[in-house]
């Protein structure tokens, strides 16, 4: 039976992460090229929004990734706390910067998409607002982790914060949704719904390709970053010395 815990020790995981990172990196590059080509040349012009809707092909994957990464981060944090495997909390802290980056990209592209469509850079729409709050959660996670010097306490404290955060994400989302519908003053409805329902087959495929590209990109960057974190935290270990001797 595949021994789950064989790769949970940093020493054995390190080389595996290297190979995986390269593989996923190449895959994401290829998918990104295909996706970009499809979103600009293959996807038809939208009957309502003309060319402006093409921002969707980067905005929607980024928004999905920002939420997915936060949940995955919380799972790694939980695993780290339950099984006390140092590697899991290292994975959690390696994912955070990429998640924060995707959240910012989602906000930025959302604003640029909103300008031509709703005429305003920032609209207090429920999804954009919860995305902004998600960015605060990411920043809080990273701030807490960098504020604590002892890596073991940092890993467990930020892990607990990620868990508390992931319980609050749905509550925040629905309270913002409630708040948005209550103050119907901003009655601008996100046209996303409109675009999605009338999305032609090819648009859905382009969206999928771009989403997988972002997904593989995240895995590649996170694995590469986790290798640096492993080296930083395990610098005293003998296998690190051996590894460096061999590289010299």
């Amino acid at each position: 039976m595949f021994n789950l815990f064989k790769y949970s020790s940093p020493a054995t995981f390190y080389p595996l992460a290297g190979r995986l990172a390269v593989g996923f990196g190449i895959a994401s590059a290829i998918l990104l090229v295909i996706g970009l080509y499809m979103s600009f040349f293959v996807a038809p012009t939208d009957y309502k929004q003309g060319e402006g809707y093409r921002i969707m092909f980067i905005h929607v994957p980024a928004a999905w990734m920002s939420m997915l990464i936060y949940v995955v981060m919380a799972c790694w944090a939980a695993a780290g706390m339950i099984w006390h495997t140092r590697l899991s909390s290292m994975m959690a802290s390696s994912l955070a910067p990429t998640g924060a980056m995707f959240t910012f990209i989602a906000l930025w592209t959302g604003a640029l998409w909103g300008k031509p469509m709703w005429g305003a850079w920032w609209v207090w729409d429920a999804r954009l607002t919860s995305e902004l709050i998600l960015l605060f959660l990411y920043v809080g996670f990273m701030a807490l982790e960098s504020a604590i010097d002892d890596p073991r306490r940092a890993a467990r404290a930020s892990g607990l914060l990620a868990l508390v955060g992931v319980i609050n994400v749905p509550i925040i989302y629905y309270s913002v949704q409630w708040w948005n519908t209550l103050h119907q003053g901003s009655s601008i409805k996100v046209v996303d719904g409109g675009v999605e329902t009338s999305m032609s087959e090819i648009m859905v495929w382009t969206l999928l390709v771009m989403t997988f590209a972002c997904w593989f990109y995240t895995i590649a960057v996170a694995l590469c970053r986790v290798r640096s974190i492993i080296l930083e935290r395990e610098s005293g270990a003998s296998w690190v010395k051996a590894l460096l001797q061999e590289r010299k």
């Binding site: 970009l36 003309g50 060319e51 402006g52 093409r54 905005h59 980024a62 990209i105 930025w108 592209t109």
Partner: peptide
Amino acid sequence: GHGLYIWGSYAVA
């Protein structure tokens, strides 16, 4: 006409 917004978002991403 939406060039600024599209290239603006893709460039930043």
